[in-house]
Design a protein around this nucleic acid. Structure first.
Lengths: 104, 104
DNA sequence: AAAATAGTTACATAGTTATTTAAATGTTTA
DNA sequence: TAAACATTTAAATAACTATGTAACTATTTT
């Protein structure tokens, strides 16, 4: 990982891109349609997300397919655990409580 | 909440402050001792964390006690869930797998 | 009320970030 | 190999961020 995960996540458009890609993989032009900005700006943001290992890029002919990288999100998970988990057990309890609450 | 949670989290020193405060509540001068920086810089970062509702401030005589705000971390939890949880159940599974792995 | 203590705010500055336009690169097709 | 398509990169610029110094505010103590 070259860039900072946290800096990458700090920008609204980049988080929107992540949530978009979560729906399904996409090409830059396709992504750009969802934004009121240029393709160049989207491309830059894709590079930043890629440098933070948040997304993957696959060449596909003349296109480039971008998708979520499910692997390297450990750093944010770790911080999340340290910060709001106390321990992993606590996070587990939190999740269980929340999912119980949602069942009601 | 005035400021952006994500911008607040995007800076190393601020995340360090959060992790420090997680240990126990502290006064600005006390916090500053842990950093190679000025009290003024710490104070500014405390304001940014407070604006993002990540910490609380309580006046205590001539001092000000800072502590983690456990309530308003929902936004990051929500994004986390959307992004890496698929569902809360998935997060639960992840946590369980990880804590099993750690038991070994 | 003055001095001491604790912390904040203003201002200047250096550094970083985001975006745009324009040029460049890589890939396919004619 | 030239044209077309998909995307990236460069350069310029405007906006924002982080930090230090110094001045200021709030609170307690003498």
């Amino acid at each position: 990982m070259t860039g900072s995960l946290w800096k990458a996540l700090a920008e609204d458009n980049r988080r929107r891109i992540l949530l978009l890609l979560r729906e399904h993989e996409m090409y830059p032009t396709e992504i750009a349609k969802h934004f009121d900005t240029t393709l160049a700006a989207v491309s830059t943001n894709l590079r930043i997300l890629k440098d933070a290992d948040l997304i993957k890029e696959t060449r596909e002919g003349q296109k480039k397919r971008y998708s979520i990288n499910p692997k390297t999100t450990m750093e944010i998970k770790d911080f999340f655990d340290k910060m709001w988990g106390q321990s992993l057990e606590d996070l587990k309890v939190f999740v269980e409580e929340k999912s119980n609450k949602e069942k009601k």
